[in-house]
Design a protein around this nucleic acid. Structure first.
Ligand SMILES: Nc1ncnc2c1ncn2[C@@H]1O[C@H](COP(=O)(O)OP(=O)(O)OP(=O)(O)O)[C@@H](O)[C@H]1O
Length: 681
DNA sequence: CCCCTGCGACGGGCC
DNA sequence: GTCGCAGGGG
């Protein structure tokens, strides 16, 4: 017998990393980045560098030769996703742009656009946002003739909420009714019937709502293992930020995505779980190690973001929770002033203080971009926005749907949606009812008639139906003229190439209607002009509509004006949209009982805890200085002026705060600044 | 069948 | 504030 000696090959030459991981990261962070573990959980408090670690891990993988398009980086909010991509690109280079992912919803959409034909959808299915979903529920309800006379039936919003909870929490409708709307338990049967009809309606019309994007992806994976294998084989590494905010289905999607290569890293902080209303469950992250025995757990404890004074307040906030959080954060950052507590006399004074403080900070080298004002409800900043506008302080607001929610934008979008999908009932309904004299019933009849005409033409597209409404049964109606104008507008619009040339036609058609409907038409006209600009950046109608639902425009006209100036604007944001971000100075405004905690949470310990975590998230956004403000009086239409109540969460932390007194200065506003007392003493 | 008015109930955060 | 329903006149 011959012998063949296999030589020992030298170990592959060590990779020449461009990034100095060892000096940028601490011990635990480094071990998370370099860990060979296939399943890794990083469980750590706010500001301990979780996101940073994740970004370094992505860079490290790319530097070690993993193709970026084989890495999937998922997170929860669009802002966090964008922020993460930017930070990664800045750290390494353009290669990071090819990393897959974004939000769960956008990633699932990409998969479904390729494969949803397997589960009975067109790959061109429409996606509806929550407002559309509410409208659709209403529409479906009107077809069911549900008896609401004897006993009040849940409003469309409540129904929508029930339906998402039902899908996301996978709880029985009865249980949900019991917990959230016991007064509607009598309607259980009808609610379920409506839910089923809503579901089948969407399926039949190739419409998906946000929940469907997740559910249908899972369904696809369950029913078609071959597709699962194909998709997951392109996901060599799956990394998930903010894992505490995932719900059951998102957690299970993570397992599916990583099922082929089995590399799954998740990052999160159970103390920052603030999306229970959407069915998220922080138990997901705590259970994560139990799902697989070989999970490596890494904890980070040093906070690199906030001063000790801020961290002290944050810890004191969290201590009020009925659930015990064992972690205690520490920091080596230098001391700052004590966080401030400002009690304004009313909303106006609060807004005035914030805008003057922001200007004062700008004089002292804290730019607007380094300051954020956070609040519980999107509308809490209304008075402040007016004050900022009057002082020409540029700001950008996050949270609240505003632009795409606005009626006039939705109106124009509905026309565009018809061009994209002539079967879109909700869009037709909306468009038809804009015509004077057309109500729900006529709109429904018209829609059925249009569908019939279309099917008679053997599925020919809208382009051929040049004489839609003439010679028809509608000739003699008083709304015939309006109908005809709509008809020719849509026909001309559908012939446009490129597609976005159709938008000016639609806007021209719509403007008279808009002027008739709203007093502030000129402001709305400007919005439509900016919508027009946006449409020009899209090659096709489909991607435009998808993007608009998944990434609704947050810029309003004021923002656009602001962005013309070079200076980075002040940030106004709901706390929910601020998660994962940080600023030098953070103001939390409207710290009132009824706002935070919200009125709807106060008699339920679980939701009260979530409100508290929300305040914790807000406080931990600050690096150098933190301010709590609230008005002592406020105004409501019915009651008039009334005394407010400070947030109950502030009481136990007042010892850690420094009260600031607001003094109205009586000097002539035109007096030289040097002759007045300093703003802050 | 539409559209206006008045009245009571509800109301939040995100994709 | 906004929604959703009831009652009226067109
Ligand atoms: N080892 C480190 N050395 C210096 N700075 C660090 C280190 N780790 C993190 N930081 C800084 O701390 C700040 C917080 O980091 P990061 O945003 O990654 O925290 P996080 O844990 O994701 O926070 P959160 O849970 O609040 O989103 C960042 O400014 C980051 O640059």
């Amino acid at each position: 017998m011959k012998q063949f000696h296999l030589r020992k090959t030298p170990p592959s030459s060590p990779i020449d990393y461009h990034i100095d991981y060892e000096s940028a990261l601490n011990q635990q962070q480094l071990s998370a980045v370099t860990s060979p573990a296939k399943r890794l959980l990083i469980l750590a408090g706010a500001g301990t560098g979780k996101t940073k670690t994740l970004i370094y891990k992505v860079s490290r993988l790319i530097e070690s030769g993993v193709p970026p398009e084989q890495i999937v980086l998922l997170t929860f909010t669009r802002r966090a996703a964008k922020e993460m991509m930017e930070r990664a690109t800045q750290l390494l280079d353009e290669r990071c742009q090819y990393v897959q992912g974004g939000t769960f919803h956008s990633f699932c959409t990409q998969i479904l656009r390729k494969y949803s034909n397997h589960i009975g959808y067109n790959n061109e299915f429409s996606i509806i946002d929550s407002a559309d979903s509410i409208d659709l529920i209403q529409h479906v309800r009107s077809t069911l003739n549900i008896d609401h006379r004897s006993q009040r039936f849940p409003a469309k919003r409540s129904l929508a909420k029930l339906f998402t909870l039902h899908k996301n929490k996978q709880l029985d409708m009865r249980v949900l009714l019991q917990e959230y709307y016991p007064q509607f338990l009598v309607h259980e049967k009808d609610v379920i019937r409506l839910f089923k009809t809503y579901e089948s309606y969407k399926a039949k019309h190739h419409i998906m709502d946000f929940d469907d994007l997740l559910f249908n992806t899972e369904k696809l994976f369950i029913e078609y293992p071959a597709i699962l294998e194909r998709v997951s084989s392109t996901c060599q590494y799956v990394l998930v930020d903010e894992f505490q905010d995932t719900n059951k289905i998102q957690a299970s999607l993570c397992e599916y995505f990583s099922s082929f290569h089995q590399n799954l890293t998740v990052v999160g902080d159970d103390a920052q779980s603030i999306y229970a209303f959407r069915g998220s469950d922080y138990e997901n992250i705590l259970r994560f190690p139990e799902e697989h025995a070989n999970t490596e757990l890494i904890k980070l404890e040093e906070n690199y973001r906030s001063s000790p004074e801020i961290l002290e307040v944050a810890n004191a906030v969290l201590k009020q929770s009925s659930i015990l959080f064992k972690k205690k954060l520490f920091t080596n950052r230098e001391s700052s002033d004590l966080p401030a507590l400002i009690k304004a006399i009313d909303d106006k004074e609060e807004a005035e203080f914030i805008s003057q403080l922001v200007l004062h900070l700008r004089e002292h080298q804290i730019t607007l971009g380094e300051v954020a004002v956070l609040f519980r409800n999107a509308r809490d900043s209304f008075t402040l926005e007016l004050a900022l506008q009057s002082k020409d302080i540029p700001f950008k607001k996050f949270g609240g749907q505003k632009f795409t929610e606005a009626a006039h934008i939705k109106d124009v979008l509905a026309h565009i949606r018809i061009l994209s999908n002539p079967n879109d009932t909700v869009a037709w309904q909306r468009v038809l009812m804009l015509i004077e004299g057309v109500g729900p019933k006529t709109a429904e009849d018209l829609f059925l008639w249009i569908q019939e005409v279309q099917s008679k033409q053997g599925g020919a597209s809208t382009t051929d139906s040049t004489h839609w409404f003439s010679d028809s049964e509608w000739m003699n109606k008083n709304y015939y003229n309006g109908l005809n104008r709509l008809g020719s507008c849509l026909i001309n619009a559908s012939k446009c190439t490129p597609w976005h040339d159709s938008v000016p036609l639609i806007v021209d058609y719509y403007l008279p209607i808009c002027k008739d409907l709203y007093d502030d038409a000129s402001k709305r006209e400007e919005d439509l002009a900016s919508l027009l600009q946006i449409t020009k950046t899209y090659q096709d109608i489909q991607s435009f509509l998808t993007d608009l639902v998944l990434e609704p425009i947050t810029d309003t006209v004021t923002d656009t004006l602001a962005s013309r100036e070079e200076e980075a604007p002040l940030t106004l944001s709901t706390i929910h949209s601020a998660k994962g971000l940080e600023w030098k100075h953070v103001l939390i405004m409207q710290c009132l009982d009824g706002s935070i905690p919200s009125t709807f949470s106060i008699d339920n310990e679980e939701s009260l805890d979530e409100e508290l975590r929300l305040l914790y998230v807000a406080t931990t956004r600050a690096k150098e200085m933190l301010y709590f403000t609230y008005p002592r009086t406020s105004f409501r239409q019915r009651e008039g002026d009334y005394l407010t109540k400070a947030s109950r969460f502030l009481d136990p932390i007042t010892a850690n705060l420094e009260p600031w007194e607001l003094i109205h200065d009586t000097h002539d506003p035109n007096l030289n600044e040097g002759n007045k007392p300093p703003l802050l003493e």
